[in-house]
Design a protein around this nucleic acid. Structure first.
Length: 264
DNA sequence: AATGAGGCCAACCGCCTCGTC
DNA sequence: CGACGAGGCGGTTGGCCTCAT
């Protein structure tokens, strides 16, 4: 509070990123790795604030990002996780490693919210703990959390059981992030694709839009959502294991109790 | 063809959390 | 232990695009 924003310096550029800026940022990250964002503008000479650099990387340039339409399974997963976690997009995004929290948030706000409102007659999406301003009062928070967890567990179980009939949900591995060893190579691919889009495209907009539309038609085979969930070494914790772990719920409740909130 | 409305999404803003001193 | 700063997160906005009229 009272702390000046990081981006109020004179000469800090705002607005859409140019291809040159993207390349500069990716080059820096290839060399130094993501992190120490404060140093990025200084070292690279980018006239961007550190936050802007980080955001550009995490939401757009980071390798392994899947763009374009969300699959049915992704949609279901988002809906269930939103019911469970509320608008904690970063947490939700951790279960969809190929999607960014910004993407999920946008997709939720522009598509899923409306879709759910249409389909859920009588029960609106506003009944879930969403924004801070919409958060129920403290006691209600506890009750809704428990209700949401139970509902989400059941619904998610059903959703996954339908989509992956041969895979017992209990053995679903936690979706894996791309291995670090491929990170920078992949980001080079990202940039190459971006440049293709910029050079071949009409140049009507910034790189973001051009490449995102390109990504939609990209012929490169994408792993299906089921394979995304099934393949690779099992992660530290399966989604369902986490969901069905009662101690986790108790932990959450304990955390709330620690803050002095009344339970009921 | 012009234009207004609504949709979409990248990027920004401001608050919060956590680590460091 | 408190102050400070960096990074993270969620909400919001601005501008482009598409579609209907």
């Amino acid at each position: 509070m009272g702390r000046p924003p990081c981006c109020d310096k004179l000469g800090v550029k705002k607005g859409p990123w140019t291809p040159e800026e993207d390349i500069t940022l990716v080059s820096y990250i290839q060399e130094h790795g993501p992190g120490n964002w404060r140093a990025v503008p200084t070292i690279t000479g980018l006239m961007r604030c550190s936050k802007s650099c980080r955001l550009r990387w995490t939401n757009y340039l980071r390798p392994g990002i899947k763009r374009g339409d969300f699959t049915d399974q992704e949609e279901k997963l988002i809906i269930h996780l939103q019911a469970l976690l509320g608008n904690r997009w970063a947490a939700i995004a951790s279960y969809l490693p190929e999607r960014t929290d910004n993407d999920i948030k946008n997709y939720w706000n522009t598509h899923l919210k409306k879709k759910l409102k249409r389909t859920q007659t009588g029960v609106t999406i506003d009944d879930t703990p969403t924004s801070r301003s919409q958060q129920p009062s403290k006691g209600q928070w506890e009750r809704r959390l428990q209700t949401d967890i139970n509902t989400a567990k059941r619904a998610l179980y059903e959703a996954i059981a339908i989509d992956i009939p041969n895979s017992p949900p209990s053995i679903l591995p936690y979706p894996q992030l791309p291995p670090p060893s491929t990170t920078y190579a992949s980001s080079t691919e990202n940039i190459a694709r971006l440049l293709e889009g910029w050079m071949g495209g009409s140049g009507k907009q910034d790189g973001a839009s051009t490449s995102s539309s390109e990504a939609r038609t990209e012929p490169e085979p994408e792993p299906s959502e089921t394979s995304m969930l099934q393949e690779g070494p099992a992660g530290p914790l399966s989604l369902l294991e986490w969901l069905f772990d009662e101690s986790e719920c108790e932990g959450l409740l304990d955390m709330k109790l620690d803050t002095g909130d009344e339970l009921f």
